[in-house]
Simulated assay, not measured.
Amino acid sequence: MSRISPIARRSLAAAGVLALASLLPTVPAAQAHSAPRLVIDGNFPDPEVVATDGALWAYATNAEPTGDPANPAHNVQTATAPGPEGPWTRQADALPVLGDWARPGLTWAPEVAPRPDGGFVMYYTARDVATERQCVGTAVSDTPAGPFTPVGDGPLVCPADEGGAIDAGSFTDEDGTPYLLYKNDGNAVGVDTWIHLQELTPDGLGFAGERVPLLRQDRPAEGGLIEAPTLVQRAGAYVLFYSAGYYGDGTYHTGYATAPALTGPYTKSDEPLMTSENTGITGPGGQDVIPGADGDWLAFHGVLSEEPLVRGMFVTPLRWDGATPSID
């Protein structure tokens, strides 16, 4: 496959920034010390939010069967809104059919990114029937609404001996090069959990380089794992958000690390960005950054009920002091 030159990539990236700016919803400027707002009062964990055509599309981990024909189980839950604070309206299942390699029922943390052809690619986590591990696959659609169609005969990434792979995240660097982030699900097999970065082919459907480990669990409060990577660039630095702890209770929290270069080294902040204590929300995590015309927002889930486990979607303004994020 031919490679795009660095100059061409920079030109494409600049054009992409201008195009994205025209698509971003105009949202109210962040108010000082505004509390996070619950915008989807129901199960909608691991939210991923994409801006397109002046609206927002959110995607979430699969829903359990409800028995309610008006609210059936979905492989990938979807909702739309004119801006971060809503109102959010639930939509049809974005991925009604999984790849042949995948077993339904454990479809987690979808990630959706635009493709050069104007369509969209979804990276979804599902149970690989061959290895019995969670692995990341791909699907494509012409529109953000879907339905997305699975691509390939197997998962895109599936390091079975490291527990599999979950929680895909996409990132496009300044030169237009696309990357995928993901976590090896090491806590499933008793090994380290690393957040990895790997260059993608321009179409987003394959890898163009070797993976680079960026960050792992190394603090007692992280409960033996870190996951849910979200990478952005601010003030000349790379800022990697992640979640840690047990997702179903108040130990779950959102941290971040910064680096001067894409591949690191990344240095974790002294204190987490969001905890149950500083937000008043149980287990804030599974975050995604929503860029807006008037500033960034953060979408994340919080525990509404532990038994049964229900995690709703919250949003809050995300402020920056250089490359240091804050929510207050």
Rank of each mutant, 00 (worst) to 15 (best):
L200D: 15
G209L: 05
Y252S: 02
Y246F: 09
H196L: 07
A228R: 07
F207I: 02
R234C: 02
F241D: 01
T251Y: 01
Q233A: 14
Y246C: 02
R211C: 03
P202T: 08
A244T: 04
E199W: 00
Q217C: 14
T201N: 05
P202D: 15
Y242N: 10
A208P: 10
L205V: 06
G209C: 09
T230N: 13
L215G: 10
I195G: 13
F207H: 08
T230F: 01
G245W: 00
A237W: 08
W194D: 12
T201W: 03
W194A: 11
H196G: 02
D249F: 01
L200F: 06
E222K: 08
Q217R: 09
G190W: 11
Y246G: 06
E222H: 12
P213L: 07
V189Q: 12
D218G: 14
T251C: 02
G204T: 05
V191C: 13
G250V: 00
T230H: 12
G206K: 01
E199K: 06
G223R: 11
E210V: 00
F241L: 13
T193M: 11
I195D: 05
Y247E: 00
A237Q: 13
A237N: 12
R211D: 14
L240P: 09
A244Q: 07
Y238S: 11
V212W: 02
V191N: 11
Y252Q: 02
R234K: 13
G250W: 01
V189Y: 14
V212I: 12
I195L: 15
V189I: 14
E199D: 00
R216T: 15
A221R: 06
I226Y: 09
A237L: 08
D203P: 09
E227F: 09
R219P: 03
Y246D: 13
L197I: 09
A244M: 08
Y242R: 08
A235W: 00
G236E: 06
L197G: 06
A244K: 01
A221D: 15
D218W: 01
R219D: 00
D218T: 15
F241K: 01
H196R: 14
G190E: 14
F241Q: 03
Q233K: 14
H196W: 15
E210N: 14
V239E: 11
Y242G: 05
G236W: 08
T201K: 10
L214P: 10
D192P: 13
L215M: 12
D218E: 14
E222Y: 07
V191L: 04
L240E: 12
D249L: 02
W194Q: 07
S243Y: 05
P202M: 01
R234A: 04
P213Y: 07
A237E: 06
Y242E: 13
L240Q: 11
L197P: 10
G248Q: 12
P229K: 07
A235R: 01
P213I: 12
V212H: 14
E199S: 04
F241V: 00
G224E: 02
V189W: 14
F241H: 02
P229C: 04
Q217S: 15
A235E: 01
D249W: 02
V232A: 03
S243V: 08
L240T: 08
T251V: 01
Y246H: 12
P229W: 03
